[in-house]
Structure formats: structure tokens, C-alpha cells
Write a protein that binds this DNA or RNA. Structure first.
Lengths: 229, 229
DNA sequence: AATCTTTGATAGTATTGCTATTATAAGAAA
DNA sequence: TTTCTTATAATAGCAATACTATCAAAGATT
């Protein structure tokens, strides 16, 4: 049961707020499960409606189309990771320790936190890994960015960037490193599972420790590095 | 006119080899232009046929569907980048210099090399930046990987990985760094253009120098780093 | 009791993603 | 030259997709 967590998202992403009604919550729940199962391309509102025992027209009353639903879920995820970072780094003073926790959070987005009953965070994480980047790789990206559709990702990136500067105030690429850590975490879990020659780590089951170690290695090499010459 | 360059691609990607016929070459040429113009989601074979003044049925004789056409174009790009790397690093002994050239090639995939008349490499590069990762983010990735659909990416990654080990033989993550350099190059050009808060570099027109500098900074920090503690 | 809102049920339309058929043109083989 | 082969064009058609519209039933609110 979610106590005190309200995921706040851009209202332009939906026609009716799905968090507010039972049907809306069912849409969120089953769209995550079905998208994870069959992938974004094969997914449509008719199949979703059938799966959740409702009708296509009802789903269309909440979301304009599946692309906006995906952005909604991805935003939900970004906001959720933000929340987890705040929660997990609370009262931790050492900025390096804080960054390690951030990396752990990127890699294990959900570990032991069943916060909101209609979202299965670990399935959502798998979905983001596989489909997340499709949310902003479209022709409408500029228009949608203007309308704030990606604000949760930008805020997450900014938060991590701030932490990076705590560790090394003169680091020249804090935003790039922040987004790269996030993308790398997702990419290399995916690569390890599907295109293992593109990475050097292996994952088994839900154990992503090697990914976590690698991202730490990359991050701290960049931040604690004195260059030879 | 292409002299001595033959881009060799997995034959399972197409029904009839498009490089072999005039119509096939028209398909390659116009699919790159149209995909760049309207994006992968809005693209279909009917629009392509209209644009190139042929018919839908004719296009279907070359490619099963637009997904396989995308993999074909992406593979073409990966192979082209491989070729450019070989060409540009020929006779360069210093491995660090070689890696710099690789990074430059990733960022400026086409600069002054109009090699094959029916492929506009700079438009293709823009297309890969925007749509490339959709080639392997699908439910069929495992099956398609088994059939060798991504072999050109794996080979490219292996090539760069070998160069990384020339510089630092005990670097623990050469494949991951290789794929990350490639993905970073594409991502941060895209971010600079569309989601600038996710990066720290700016690009103007066709000038990606800041991206190149940043990727170099990341790569050589990792490879020439002695950690403080 | 009246009415307002949400959902379900059903229908319908334009577009998409193909497949099939036939005709024609162009080139190679006889 | 004739014939054979093959590629392409032209057209049709079909099942699925991506919606939109309408209306009725069921709660919930006043």
C-alpha cells in the first residue's frame, strides 16, 4: 500500500488521470504487464482492453494513443527512480557513497519496495530497459519536450549531475555523465541478456551485480582520475 | 562512384539483394531519405513506393517489412563505419592516435567520403542517431541475433575493443567501452539537438567537435587513469 | 427523484500491412 | 528472330490497426 507516495506527472500526458480511478489503475497495471510480454510494436489498445476485461473505447478515454501511454509509464519510472534516490540517500553525507547508491538504484530500480500496488516495479524496469528509449526517439521529440513530456528525465539527470559536482566540482560533463550512467545501466543489462558480445558483464536471473560494479568503475575512474601522460 | 567498396551484409536481411539492381538501389536511397524525413513510425512501403515512383508490391519483393529494412540500413551503416575506421587508421602506429581516429569516425561518420552514389552517408548517420537503436530493441532480438542480423555491430564493437586493449591490455571492460563510445556519440549528438539538458555539449549545424572532445575525454580518462584514493 | 459521470457495448471508417493476379517490358538464350 | 525468363507495374483485395461516435446502463452526487 502506497503511503505518502504520489507520483506527479505532466497532465498533458493523459486525458483522464489514471491514478485517480480504479479503471485507470488497471490500465497502468495491465499495460506494463502486456507491454513487457509482447513488446511495444505488437501492443495495442484492443489487446490491452481484452486483457484487462474492458473495452478499447474506455482505454482511449484515458490515453490518446500508445505512444503517450509509453511516455507516461517511462515518466512514472523516472519519477519513481528519483524518489528511490531521495529515499536511499537520505542522511548519507559522503557524496561518493551517495553516488554509489544512485548507481545501485539505477541498476536495481526496485529491489525491495513494493510501493504502489498497481505497479510491478521490477516488470516496469524490464520494460524501460527494453522500450524506454523509444519514448523520446520520435519525430515529435522537440514539440513534446517543449510541452514538458520529458521533465522527469531532465530532473533526474539534474539531480545526479548535482551529486557528481559534489564529488568533483570542476568535472566538465556532469549532465552527460549522469544521463550516460542511467543509459549505460539499462543498456548493459539488455546487452548482457541479448547481445552479450557488446558488453563484458554477465547477469543471471535478477542478479545485476556485475553491471553495478562496472558502472561504478566507469563513474569513479572519471571522477577520481589523475591522468598519466 | 564506389571503387572497391562492397558492403557485405547478411543475406537473410533481404529477399532480393538491393545492391544488385537499379530498383534495389533506389529503395536504399529513398528509404534513407524518407525515414530521415518522417521517422520510422510514420514510414511505410506505400509511402516509399510513391516517393520513388514505384509500387508497394515491388518494394515487398526486396524486403519482408520495414523492420528488416531498418536492420539492413543500420547494418549498412555499421559496416560503413568499420570500413572508414580501417581506411582512416591505416598506417597509424600509435594506438592512442588510432582510438582518437575511431572516435572521430563515430562522431563524423561521413565527413568527406561520398563513396556510394545511392547512399547519402550524412543523412544515413542522422537516421542512425534517431532510429538506430530500434533495430535491436524488439521482442525478436534473440532470434534475430542467432541468425546473425547484428553481426556487423558485434564486429565493429570487437574491432574497437581490440584497439582499447592495445592501449591498456588490462582494461577490464573493453567491449562495454567500445559499444558505449559508439552509443554515446550518437546519443549526445541527439541530446544536444533535442534534449540539451541531458548533456553538456552543444552542436551547431554539422559541427560536432564538442561531442568529439567529450567522448575523447571519457575514453582517455578511463584508459589513462590512475585512481586517487 | 433527478442528473451527472463513468463505463460498456456496439458500430463504423480510414489507414496499414501485407498477398495475389495479371499484364507488360526488357534481356538472355535458342 | 523467336522464344523464354525475369523484373516490374498495375490493380485488387483482405485482415488488422488506430481510432471516433453513439447510446444505454450503472453508480454516485445533488
Amino acid at each position: 500500500m502506497a503511503i505518502g507516495i504520489k507520483i506527479s506527472l505532466n497532465e498533458k500526458l493523459f486525458l483522464r488521470d489514471p491514478q485517480e480511478t480504479a479503471l485507470g489503475q488497471k490500465i497502468i497495471k495491465h499495460s506494463i504487464l502486456l507491454l513487457d510480454e509482447i513488446g511495444f510494436e505488437a501492443f495495442n489498445f484492443k489487446k490491452l482492453a481484452k486483457r484487462m476485461e474492458s473495452t478499447e473505447a474506455s482505454v482511449y478515454r484515458y490515453f490518446e494513443n500508445k505512444h503517450l501511454l509509453l511516455i507516461y509509464l517511462v515518466s512514472w519510472y523516472w519519477e519513481w527512480v528519483s524518489y528511490l534516490i531521495d529515499y536511499n540517500t537520505m542522511n548519507i553525507e559522503d557524496p561518493k557513497r551517495r553516488l554509489k547508491i544512485i548507481i545501485e538504484t539505477f541498476v536495481y530500480a526496485s529491489k525491495e519496495n513494493p510501493a504502489i500496488e498497481y505497479v510491478n516495479e521490477s516488470v516496469l524496469h524490464r520494460l524501460i530497459i527494453a522500450e524506454g528509449s523509444k519514448a523520446y526517439h520520435t519525430k515529435a521529440v522537440d514539440k513534446e519536450n517543449t510541452e514538458g513530456f520529458f521533465i522527469n528525465y531532465l530532473k533526474l539527470s539534474q539531480k545526479v549531475s548535482d551529486e557528481i559536482l559534489e564529488i568533483k566540482p570542476d568535472f566538465p560533463y556532469p549532465h552527460a555523465l549522469a544521463s550516460n550512467l542511467f543509459e549505460m545501466a539499462n543498456n548493459h543489462i539488455y546487452f548482457a541478456q541479448h547481445l552479450p558480445k557488446l558488453t563484458d558483464v554477465t547477469v543471471s536471473d535478477e542478479n545485476y551485480d556485475e553491471v553495478e560494479q562496472m558502472i561504478e568503475y566507469f563513474a569513479f575512474s572519471l571522477l577520481e582520475c589523475r591522468r598519466d601522460k
